[in-house]
Write a protein that binds this DNA or RNA. Structure first.
Lengths: 337, 337
DNA sequence: GCAGCCTATGTTACCCGTGCCATTTCTAAC
DNA sequence: GTTAGAAATGGCACGGGTAACATAGGCTGC
């Protein structure tokens, strides 16, 4: 029958304090697990919280301390579903552990204008830090301006200044994939790369290139997709027309699906005629036909590591998990001529 | 050289007011396009805003309004990567349009305890509404308690009370898939269902069952997977051993990958020996071997519709898009005996 | 018995945009 | 010239959690 009960308003800490017969400060301390609260008092407070259905309100803290205990996560809407999910889960888990919540901003396309908008949106929300899981290489001045005051970590991307970058060793992934094909007896390895804007695509390509160079092989021109299976299909159609192609390193599992389909349609069998190695090890990689030989990466861990870096809680520098080659049936020795 | 400039802090309206030689109230009015502001004053204010790089701070308004303008989104960490991404994007887009931000809570497993924890976490964050994209049928009293004060919408799930449910017509999806197989000449259709806890799995199974019943066929027992390709593989191994199986309706594309692999390993070809229809139309469905005949659903739209429902901004009840059958190569007429 | 310290709790001020009301200046109408 | 009203602007309080400081007991050690 109190006023607070009658009105539609949410109860405040003051209401709880009144009900429990303590001060608001004590309520605050209780809810934040501050050490100096008597067990009996705590119990009374928690009972009052329960009864009044009190819900914490973060706005005042944001107002006075400037900290929201919220991290922003920028994601690309399409493509790379699997890796994105894993990164998201990793970010959220690590953030949650540290008492932070995660606010998302998805961008429809990889485009600096949308990127700016997302960053601005998160910035307006007062996030304490930003994890960018969209590895855009070109960075505008405006983006720099927005993130100047907010700690920012880019998962596997590149920023010109200020922001830190968490690198998974994509270079090594490219090298491993290529080396496996060479070890299987192939004399040349072709490559379907991701978009050149993505630093992980670049690194994988560099790993491929350098591995070939180290083996004394001139790398053929790389073909470029956009991570979608459809783009893999298009590049695969081209590769299917080149008779000497016997081994292809594809920059993602999803594109590899497209490449394999194109090859099959042109009568080139995998792995009998052409061997394929890709990167990601998505769940479906083991269940398609043929099961994909691929380089696995731990995206969950990357996401968690990004948060650790942001919050300065990382235990050590060894945050990035090493890639590992999973050999399945999409690779074989080349047909002897 | 003013204090505000020296400190790392963001400038406030008061700083702008000082710089422009007006009161904070006038700055507020100017920025909100209030009518009663002199043109010359407005110009001075805007100049000061520009110079000080003032950026609006929403926290005080949140404080006064008691609303956080944040929605919570509960997601399952594993499985159904594609649909989850699409739902997320839809939710975030619709929320963003309405001026809301989206805070995520992922749960590792489909489990009521984790669910409660997630809801509690979002509740503690003071979200204005919750979208549950984890369609758990069993709902605990505690969950009801937590969400009593927060508008909640479950995408494709079921809640006992209070919370609203946004249904895609999964029933129809199951019916369409089954009917297509019957139309192709099959006399019997087997089914690999999703977990019974998921209402969408139940509905799809019901659609399958009723379609068979309507055709005067006794439905065989349904096999149950957990949405993962691996679970599809296990059920597929069983079905491969039953000679009379010529047509299978699989409740998700990802499980269908597993089923096909199991059939292939037992020497049963798709679609020559066994036809497969699944649901989702993930991007990879068109690029595997054989390309999947599947029922497409618009998850993005579901996510957006959920937010509309939550915010009461929905234009009409026709929020859920109808499923549509995409015929590819995993279905064919049964081998004539 | 008192200094010294720790524990438990209360009091006050602050964060900053905005609603409400007060005040000033100017114009219009009689 | 006086009054009514509009336009432009300022002053003040409010919202709710929390840092910082203040206060009141209780305990230890000599």
């Amino acid at each position: 029958m109190t006023e607070a009960t009658m009105r539609g308003k949410q109860p405040s800490m003051a209401d709880v304090a009144r009900a429990a017969g303590v001060s608001a400060q004590t309520v605050s301390r209780t809810l934040r697990d501050s050490p100096n609260v008597n067990a009996e008092t705590r119990r009374r407070v928690l009972t009052a919280v329960e009864q009044l259905r009190y819900r914490y309100n973060g706005a005042p803290r944001l107002l006075s301390s400037g900290r929201s205990f919220t991290l922003g996560l920028v994601l690309l809407q399409s493509g790379g579903y699997y890796s994105r999910s894993a990164v998201t889960a990793g970010v959220e888990a690590a953030a949650g552990q540290a008492g932070y919540s995660v606010s998302i901003a998805t961008i429809a396309e990889l485009d600096t204008a949308m990127m700016e908008k997302s960053l601005l949106k998160l910035s307006d929300q007062g996030v304490d830090g930003i994890v960018i899981a969209v590895p855009l290489i070109s960075v505008t001045q405006r983006m720099e301006d927005i993130t100047r005051d907010i700690p920012t970590v880019t998962v596997d991307g590149s920023r010109t200044t200020g922001a830190r970058v968490l690198g998974i060793d994509q270079h090594e992934a490219g090298r491993m994939a290529t080396q496996h094909l060479l070890d299987s007896g192939h004399r040349q390895v072709w490559h379907v790369a991701g978009p050149d804007e993505w630093i992980e695509a670049r690194q994988r390509r560099q790993g491929w290139q350098e591995c070939l160079t180290a083996a004394g092989i001139d790398a053929p021109p790389a073909l470029e997709g956009d991570w979608s299976p459809e783009s893999g299909y298009r590049q695969g159609q081209i590769l299917a027309m080149i008779p000497e192609v016997t081994a292809i390193f594809v920059a993602s599992d999803e594109m590899a699906f497209g490449v394999i389909r194109a090859l099959r349609e042109r009568g080139r069998s995998v792995p009998a005629d052409v061997s394929i190695v890709s990167v990601d090890d998505i769940e479906l990689a083991a269940y398609c036909h043929p099961p994909l030989t691929t380089v696995r990466q731990d995206f969950y861990r990357s996401g968690a590591a990004a948060v650790a870096l942001l919050l300065g809680t990382e235990d050590a520098g060894e945050s990035g998990a090493q890639p590992s080659l999973i050999v399945r049936e999409s690779t074989a020795a080349p047909r002897s001529r």
